[in-house]
Design a protein around this nucleic acid. Structure first.
Lengths: 219, 219
DNA sequence: CGAATCTTTGACAAGCATCAAGGGGTGTGG
DNA sequence: CCACACCCCTTGATGCTTGTCAAAGATTCG
């Protein structure tokens, strides 16, 4: 298998609760440490969440010991709604992250159109992700990932990766070594440069875009 | 690339319109020939559909000439709702197929909860599909596909595949040759038998299930 | 400064794609 | 009713992409 994904030291301190700005119904802002669980696999899926600052991974452990990262979420993005009443996936903070949680119980009645739009968007992202995994080569997947992340972070050419190579590998259905090699290849071609492993600078956005083939945007 | 997927002879007769049973709002039953398009990529996504009899594939053409089959749908299943107002995928009948189309315009107001549930379910299926494509070997994918199809067809051990090897390959992100080899391997191990290429008989359901690894059900 | 973790790089192997050719079933015409 | 043709499927040989195993370099934090 290809995942030794548990963060080494995970101080399991209880999250700091903060009352956040009122936006729709009952909601609470919570700050999570790096590696801390936001919701558990099997837990009741009665809330949805918005990343205020920081970043989140949503994933699932496979019976063979592997892990699939289903999606990353950065500031401003919603996550956490699922089909059943129980979470089939779990969510963790990738760094110090502030999350606003929305109760779905009562709010669901009046926010159905928004929820539907969010669900459809999530569906679309899942389908784009499928295309990426199924039809693209390793370097194409990494290029698409970087470009997508760049856009979602506001379009700055320089940004910091909140996730490890292992996280990226588990998201792109590759191994950590293959992700690393793809990064090195992009660096080799001067398409990106890396101050260090987590600091990306996109030097040739067009070249990166031309590597993506056909996939537009994804989760 | 790996898809020469256009059916050979495609009699482009206009579909036969039939008034179907009243179930919710305005809806029409239409019969499609094998290979006929139900909705087009780029067309307005203002309806959703239910397979009455037959089977459907939902797919997308990639810029490299390849094709990704996103989902198959058999009798009783809903399909066709998407995030935007335009279809990003297209749907075709795999055989002589009867479809009931539901107008979404007015019905959307009163059927929001159902639509939300359908969208979430579609998202879940896409995510399961993702796991299958990203983490399973060729034979595991084929085994999972067969088992899933079997269950959705009502659990009969013998059934006819409405889709070609090419369709299956494009669904599982494999080549037609690899799908064929996987089938032969399953036949070799007496896990399935094939009267002919399209007639599957599952001889050892448990053996098939043990090949699936961890994926439960998908689209 | 040193320990621990994350990342990179190399060598090798395995699985799947690709290229190529041969079988089998179905439909049409003789 | 048989024969031929077309399409779909199967099987084989070979090469490439990626996974696996191994070790060394880089970064962070105490």
């Amino acid at each position: 298998m290809q995942s030794k994904f548990m963060p080494a030291a995970q101080p399991w301190t209880s999250p700091t609760k903060i009352v956040g700005p009122q936006i729709g119904g009952a909601h609470i802002a919570v700050t999570y440490e790096r590696g801390q669980e936001i919701y558990a696999q099997g837990g009741s899926a009665d809330k949805c969440y918005r990343v205020s600052t920081g970043a989140v991974r949503v994933c699932r452990i496979l019976s063979n010991g592997g892990r699939q990262v289903v999606s990353f979420h950065v500031a401003g993005e919603m996550f956490g709604f699922e089909a059943g009443s129980q979470h089939r996936y779990f969510a963790e903070a990738l760094a110090l992250t502030r999350i606003v949680a929305f109760e779905q119980g009562l709010a669901q009645q009046r926010h159905l159109p928004e929820l539907l739009a969010l669900a459809l968007e999530a569906m679309e992202r899942a389908q784009e992700h499928l295309l990426l995994i199924g039809r693209q080569s390793a370097i194409e997947r990494v290029a698409t990932f970087l470009l997508d992340l760049c856009e979602r972070l506001g379009g700055t050419r320089q940004f910091r990766l909140a996730m490890s190579r292992q996280d990226i590998a588990d998201y792109l259905a590759l191994t950590i070594e293959t992700v690393s090699r793809a990064m090195s290849e992009l660096k080799e071609q001067s398409i990106i440069s890396l101050r260090h492993a987590r600091m990306v600078d996109i030097r040739k956005p067009d070249a990166l875009r031309s590597l993506c083939g056909h996939v537009a945007g994804l989760s």
